[in-house]
Design a protein around this nucleic acid. Structure first.
Length: 400
DNA sequence: TCTGGGGTCCTAGGACCC
DNA sequence: TCTGGGGTCCTAGGACCC
């Protein structure tokens, strides 16, 4: 099984671990007795490794069905537009996708095929639920199959129905399975399931496409880097270092997508605060400022970020988490100039490029700003991380 | 004594996702 | 002792415009 950042809770489990009763999203420390009893292997998150393998899988999919027919939805999921194939060809293409990805990357995948995205997610769910029977491939290509699948699915397991809606549907209207939900009116969905979002969901259940394939190249509208500290921190200098480090990371992400940001906000969470309450809520300890003009230069972002910590920090308090968010994001070619600033920024741009290149080719943070500190007592725990086998020379997998 | 209609932009908050 | 991080979309309501 795999742990969240800071080795806090369990975020992924193998089938075997599931069978032994390890709960999803449960705290690691509570599961420890079970883990030791059954000698379950435990790993810290390893995003370098996952990211690289994800990229390999997605590239394989692009090779098979064509670049423009793949929409990467998350690190481990993609939507493929198969409308170029006939219904008769689908079983073969599903098999080809599955076996090619496995052969080229070693990653096992499951395939769900249906007329709409919501139904395809449903099909995929079934493919995983009964692996032996389905061979990890489920195709919902007839009305009867779709109806049967909907009948067997709780509304809570639908893509787009979360905690709140599931509860509402069941308690207020006695709607328990997806087939029941499919039969409500669009009007009902509109008033009770979040407006047009709900209406779309109902249409998708009826096999009417209303979530289209999306373009790949979209850039992020918000970039955040937030972390729990390894253990609570009480001195302002350490929090500033952490915030400077997070800001550097966020700025890197910004530059990677060729953007610049105009708004930067910073927040801290005190030890006794319930960190599950959303940090965007009013009661969170956060500050936000708008910069004179959009930038992607780390130095221009670190300074205001660290200054905001001066305003947020309360002496004597212990903090367990901090974060930086960048918004007001624009393409970096079209930065709106500011009349009162000199605008020759070419050296800074070259400096940033150079830092990014060195950090990418050597290792993270071989070059960093002094504000980020050197000791990093606040660093998160990651005690059980596997090797970054495919992205670091010195961590290559060794075989004898 | 009495005062319209139509619109845009922004923000906060609520839901959702992996 | 101890429970993640990073996103998206939509709506309502307020401020403001002519």
């Amino acid at each position: 099984m795999v742990l969240s950042n800071n080795d806090g809770c369990i975020i992924s489990r193998s089938d075997e671990a599931k069978k032994l009763g390890v709960q999803m999203a449960g705290p690691y420390f509570l599961a420890k007795p079970l883990i030791e009893k059954h000698n379950i292997s435990v790993f810290s998150s390893n995003y370098n490794l996952y990211g690289d393998l994800s990229w390999r899988v997605m590239e394989t999919l692009r090779t098979i069905v064509g670049k423009k027919n793949v929409e990467v939805y998350s690190v481990d999921e993609a939507f493929l537009d198969l409308s170029i194939f006939s219904k008769e060809e689908l079983p073969a293409i599903a098999k080809e996708i599955k076996s090619t990805v496995e052969q080229w990357t070693g990653i096992k995948v499951s395939v769900g095929i249906a007329p709409t995205k919501v139904l395809a997610k449903l099909a995929n769910r079934f493919s995983k639920k009964e692996k032996e029977k389905t061979g990890c491939v489920v195709i919902l290509d007839t009305e009867e199959k779709i109806i049967e699948a909907l009948r067997q699915t709780s509304v809570a397991d639908l893509w787009g129905v979360g905690h709140q809606y599931a509860k509402k549907l069941q308690e207020m209207w006695g709607i328990y399975d997806a087939l029941q939900l499919r039969n409500v009116s669009e009007m009902f969905a509109k008033t009770n399931l979040g407006g047009v979002v709900g209406a779309r969901l109902i249409r998708e259940l009826r096999a009417e496409t209303s979530k289209e394939m999306e373009e790949e190249l979209s850039s992020k509208k918000m970039i955040a880097t937030t972390r729990m500290f390894g253990s609570p921190v009480g001195d302002i200098a350490s929090i500033k270092e952490a915030v400077a480090t997070y800001t550097s990371r966020a700025a890197e992400k910004l530059r990677r997508q060729h953007s610049a940001a105009k708004v930067i906000s910073v927040f801290v969470v005190a030890k006794e605060q319930d960190h599950t309450t959303n940090f965007r809520m009013k009661n969170a300890n956060s500050r936000q400022i708008e910069l004179p003009s959009a930038t992607s230069f780390t130095n221009e972002l670190i300074k205001p970020a660290v200054q905001m910590i001066d305003q947020l920090f309360e002496k004597g308090k212990l903090y367990k988490k901090a974060g930086v968010m960048l918004s007001g994001i624009v393409p970096d070619e079209s930065i709106q100039g500011n009349l009162f600033r000199e605008d020759n920024k070419n050296c800074e741009r070259r400096l940033m490029d150079m830092i990014d290149n060195v950090n990418f080719s050597q290792r993270d943070d071989v070059l960093k700003f002094a504000a980020s500190g050197t000791t990093r007592d606040w660093k998160m725990r990651q005690e059980l991380r596997s090797g970054r086998y495919t992205t670091r020379w010195n961590e290559l997998f060794e075989a004898r």
